[in-house]
Amino acid sequence: MKHRYCFEALDKSLRDILSFKDSSNSQRPFGGKITIFGGDFRQILPVIPKGSRQDVVNATLNSLYLWSHCQLLQLTKNMRLQGTAIGSALDELRDFSDWILAVGDGRIGSSVDGIEKVPIPKDLLISECIDPISSIVESTYPDFISRCNDIGYLQKRAILAPTLDMVESINQYMISLNQNLEKSYLSSDNICGSDQTYSALEH
């Protein structure tokens, strides 16, 4: 997910540093050091402000000039399925995991007029609703008004949204449901010096 320039800078720095020990290291990727990248290509691409599709693709790791030297290893075991879930809960988790992988691999879905469409299982859909925001809030946070002070209840749930505008709309709706008194928290981006810091400067 990092811009390829990060890896190019590391590569050139290691070549320069390690060439003092062995001049041939200047010709080796990362100065001859084995480098491991960890990540998931199904996750978000590098963010290029106001960039085109070409700009985003050009910033990805597999556009790196060293990509031909990389060996791609794929994880095959879903560790979330090794948890404490049993019976129907485990089967449900496994089915969802398999569906997510199939979507990521492009084995599910079709292209219609250049637009990729993926069928969503019915158990993941909210089929009948008048107000989409209130429906998804009620589905994700049932009995929110009576349980909004329960930290555990809140920590186990989250709503993901595709745009910041949608996030703002959902946040405003949920704030309107909260009947507790408002609190304002102030933040500062300055470092407060301790007494020891001032005494050290005086000496």
Rank of each mutant, 00 (worst) to 15 (best):
M1F: 09
M1W: 04
K2D: 11
K2V: 09
H3M: 04
R4W: 08
R4T: 14
Y5V: 11
Y5A: 06
Y5D: 08
F7Y: 14
A9Q: 06
A9D: 06
A9C: 11
K12E: 14
S13E: 07
L14Q: 04
I17N: 03
S19R: 02
F20K: 13
D22S: 02
S23F: 01
S23R: 10
S23V: 14
R28Y: 06
P29G: 03
F30R: 11
G32V: 05
T35Y: 03
I36H: 02
F37Y: 13
F37A: 00
G39Q: 02
G39K: 05
D40P: 07
Q43N: 10
I44S: 15
L45M: 10
L45K: 10
P46W: 00
K50R: 15
S52Y: 02
S52N: 06
D55P: 10
V56G: 03
V57R: 12
N62M: 09
Y65D: 13
L66V: 08
W67D: 03
S68C: 05
Q71G: 01
Q71E: 05
L72P: 01
L72F: 10
L73T: 02
L73W: 01
Q74V: 10
Q74P: 03
T76F: 03
K77C: 08
N78R: 00
M79S: 01
M79V: 09
G83Q: 04
G83W: 04
T84C: 08
T84L: 12
A85L: 14
A85M: 15
D91R: 06
E92H: 12
L93Q: 15
D98R: 11
D98E: 12
D98C: 08
W99K: 02
I100F: 01
L101P: 00
A102G: 05
V103D: 01
G104H: 01
G104P: 01
G104D: 01
D105A: 06
D105E: 15
R107E: 07
S110F: 00
S111Y: 07
V112P: 00
D113E: 12
G114E: 06
G114C: 06
E116P: 06
P119S: 14
P119A: 12
P119I: 07
P119D: 12
I120V: 15
P121T: 06
K122Q: 15
L124S: 04
I126F: 09
S127D: 14
S127Q: 15
E128H: 15
C129S: 12
I130P: 04
I133R: 07
S134G: 11
S135Q: 07
I136K: 12
I136V: 15
S139K: 09
Y141N: 05
I145P: 01
I145L: 09
S146L: 14
N149W: 01
N149A: 08
G152K: 05
G152W: 01
L154V: 13
K156Q: 14
I159C: 06
A161I: 13
D165K: 03
D165A: 10
M166R: 09
V167T: 06
Y173A: 09
Y173M: 05
I175P: 00
I175G: 04
S176C: 07
S176L: 05
N178S: 08
N178D: 13
N180L: 10
N180H: 11
L181M: 09
E182S: 13
Y185N: 10
S187E: 11
S188Y: 03
I191E: 15
G193M: 14
S199H: 09
A200Y: 11
E202Q: 13
